[in-house]
Simulated scan of single mutants.
Amino acid sequence: MYSTISVLFLRSLIIDRHIEIVEIDYLLRRPAAAIERELTIQKRVVSLFAMKKKLERLPTDFRFILKWSQSFSHYNNLIYKNGQQPFLDNNCTFRNCYLTNDKGLITDVTFFDAILFDVENRWDPHPIERSQYQRFVFVGAESAANFPICAKIYNDYYNLTWTYKLDSDISNAYLNILDKNGTIVGPKVDMTWIKPMAATPDEVTVKIAKKTKAAAWFVSNCNAKNDRRVIANHIREALMAYGLDIDIYGWCGKMVCPKNQFSECLQLLQEDYYFYLSFENSDAEDYVTEKLLHAVMNYAVPIVYGGANYSRFLPPGSYINAKEQDAISIAFAINEAMKNPKVYEKYFRWHNYYSYAKAGEKAEVCKLCEVLNSPPTFTAKKDFKDWWNTKGTCKTTI
């Protein structure tokens, strides 16, 4: 195992020269059966604490939030800072929340108002004691296909969900869709789009008029579970009939784009490429990452591939879905757009009404504190296993 860790560490030093961080699963995982035993015991003993006297709290008292998983302490994490600072920094309406990794900060773990659990963490034992007044929060930024919940024991376990899924209690989407007033209007489950749409604005047609290359793809994980590389190769083969190709940057291709020059690479995408492969590394509902932003924020048409319903994220007629079209039809569409500027311009009509941006952190952090200032009730999410899963990812059902 240590030799494996050493190899991955050395590779991480090298990969920093490229544009994407390598997507590696955690090496250490506890058996699902061990987790099931813990949670079964907890469900049995939680009733013993149902009559535990509730702490007397003033409305202005701190809401203490325990980060059960050490992974929340990574500097790239949204809530890596401890204390009250994240809520002050984001100017939240409710700021009386306090984050900590210290399980002994207060006398009893059942007195924490909320405990955050990371979906990627499979080694820390779950707490046995549980108060009926505290929230157990499921936090998931990574794909449910890569980190599925296969045990039924999680049903009725978590009170709140904080994930990229659009029906989560606290949204952790990777992107925002804004109207022309700068108001966030999506993505959302019941997303509606303005139609019909007017012709593409003149300033956009000028930007896209000088493009010369068919498509680009920035990628470093060559062995994604959903075989996205196979799909990309099929499209490349189909494009050969038109004398076109896909320029692949990173570990999986011959083109190089240093990570510290990523903004220059995106500028190259904006100026030269008609299309961009916004391929996710796995298929999961609503799992749409910054890969889509590379295209829509840089005047390239996204060719998407993933498990999401993309009508929640993109206006109709603005993209090509490689899950719904075969390689030959995609290559034909690329060639037609490159030959006929009017055809290509139609992909960008949405610019009259919408814009895209990377999702901010304020809404998520503030929502957490807001929820904890509402009356505490134990309403765990039913059928959680079916909610956080992707068909076929669980080989067995516990």
Rank of each mutant, 00 (worst) to 15 (best):
P375V: 02
I14K: 13
D283P: 13
E361M: 12
K358C: 04
K382R: 13
D245A: 09
K358I: 10
K342Y: 13
I149H: 06
C92N: 00
E336V: 09
Q270M: 10
S12L: 11
L58K: 07
T396N: 12
A331E: 06
K180S: 07
G307E: 04
G182T: 02
Y299E: 14
T192Q: 13
Y2H: 12
N321W: 05
I5K: 07
K339G: 06
Y80E: 11
K346W: 03
K367L: 04
G182A: 05
P125Q: 01
P86L: 00
L277I: 13
F62G: 13
N233F: 09
N146A: 09
C92E: 00
Q267F: 12
D124F: 06
P302H: 03
L55M: 03
N82H: 09
L292R: 07
C366M: 03
Y310D: 09
N155F: 05
T60I: 09
L178W: 07
Y242T: 02
P59Q: 00
Y310S: 10
D108E: 12
L266I: 14
L88W: 13
M197W: 01
L277D: 07
Q134K: 07
Q325S: 09
S73V: 05
S47W: 11
V206N: 13
T40F: 15
P302I: 08
H234Y: 15
L160M: 08
L175C: 06
A151L: 13
I65V: 15
S278P: 07
A216W: 01
K291L: 08
N226D: 04
A151R: 13
C150P: 04
I41L: 11
F332I: 10
F62W: 08
C97E: 00
E345A: 11
N181E: 15
D25K: 14
A238N: 08
I194P: 04
N335A: 15
L314G: 07
K385Q: 14
E36M: 11
I170R: 00
S220K: 01
M51Y: 11
V109N: 01
L292A: 06
K210P: 04
F72A: 06
Q134E: 03
Y249G: 03
E36V: 14
I14H: 14
P302F: 03
G83V: 05
G83Y: 04
R229L: 10
L239Y: 01
K362E: 06
F72N: 02
H234E: 15
S3G: 09
A300S: 14
R17K: 15
E237Y: 08
I153Q: 01
L314W: 05
G243Y: 04
A327H: 08
K81G: 02
V185L: 09
F111M: 13
R44Y: 10
S12C: 11
K391Q: 12
T393F: 15
L160D: 02
K188G: 08
A232W: 01
K339I: 11
P258D: 02
R95Y: 00
K385E: 14
A322H: 05
C257L: 11
F64I: 14
A380R: 05
S374A: 14
N101E: 02
S263G: 11
E271R: 11
G186C: 05
F94N: 05
P258G: 07
F384C: 14
P127Y: 01
T289M: 08
I149C: 08
E271Q: 10
P148L: 12
Y80W: 11
V189D: 03
